[in-house]
């Protein structure tokens, strides 16, 4: 029915109705509308094409569009569900929904596993873990010798790789996170419940009311 009604508001490519996204995620319709305001801001920061490119994502995270970071790359790749090099609005909302305080812990654990499974093999391997520790050291002021890094990685593997096959599988990861819940602390963003205050979007909200 909506096909006969021509809206004057122009949406970005890949726009999806807030009511649809709210039904699929822990977000309310108002929160999705506010996220659209944030999405528009980020996606217009370098190329105004209504899609978030990697440099726009880096700019939003680091205030520097050229700053590369292994973990930001991983987050971007996971948000880019269609794997076409850009983040569309629906992808942005569905991915951020994992970080909602009301999202299920299981979803956060799975997302973190995929994040750390750098080569998408279905396992976190020792080599990947060492690569991530070195990437973290590279961006921080911590200066640890290779021996210390090896010791930390070995100890972590002894604790997490319960069956001792040299890689952490999803079930081992889940058990490890249950014992160390701080590992997924960064998978919850309290900001997401305040987003309507930070990005009020009166225009879009009135549009939803009009259609009801």
């Amino acid at each position: 029915m909506g096909c006969f009604y021509s809206k004057t508001t122009k949406h970005t490519p890949g726009y999806e109705e807030p009511s649809v996204l709210a039904a699929e995620t822990p977000f309310t319709v108002s929160e999705v509308e506010a996220l659209y305001e944030l999405f528009k801001k980020i996606s217009a920061s370098v190329n105004n094409d209504g899609l978030i490119h990697k440099e726009e994502f880096q700019l939003a995270l680091f205030q520097n569009k050229d700053r590369r970071n292994l973990f930001a790359d991983r987050i971007f790749d996971l948000f880019d569900i269609k794997r076409n090099g850009v983040i569309e609005f629906g992808e942005f909302v569905r991915s951020l929904s994992v970080f909602h305080p009301n999202a299920q812990t299981a979803a956060k654990i799975t997302f973190a596993f995929r994040l750390y499974d750098l080569r998408n093999t279905g396992f976190i391997e020792r080599e990947e873990l060492k690569e991530m520790v070195l990437a973290l050291l590279n961006e921080s002021e911590l200066d640890l010798s290779d021996d210390v890094v090896e010791t930390i990685v070995d100890k972590t593997f002894r604790d997490a790789d319960v069956n001792g096959d040299g890689r952490i599988d999803p079930e081992e990861w889940k058990e490890f996170v249950m014992k160390n819940p701080s590992l997924i602390k960064n998978m919850t963003l309290p900001y997401l419940t305040d987003i309507t205050l930070a990005f009020p979007s009166f225009v879009v909200r009135s549009e939803v009311e009009d259609s009801e």
Partner: peptide
């Protein structure tokens, strides 16, 4: 916490690249 006492994932979770709260800063 002394780094040796930490597990590797705790260290990694400190990365700025994993701190998405920066997306919401104006």
């Amino acid at each position: 916490t002394a780094p040796l006492a930490m597990n590797a994932f705790e260290l990694i979770s400190r990365s700025q690249g994993l701190n998405l709260s920066s997306l919401f800063e104006k």
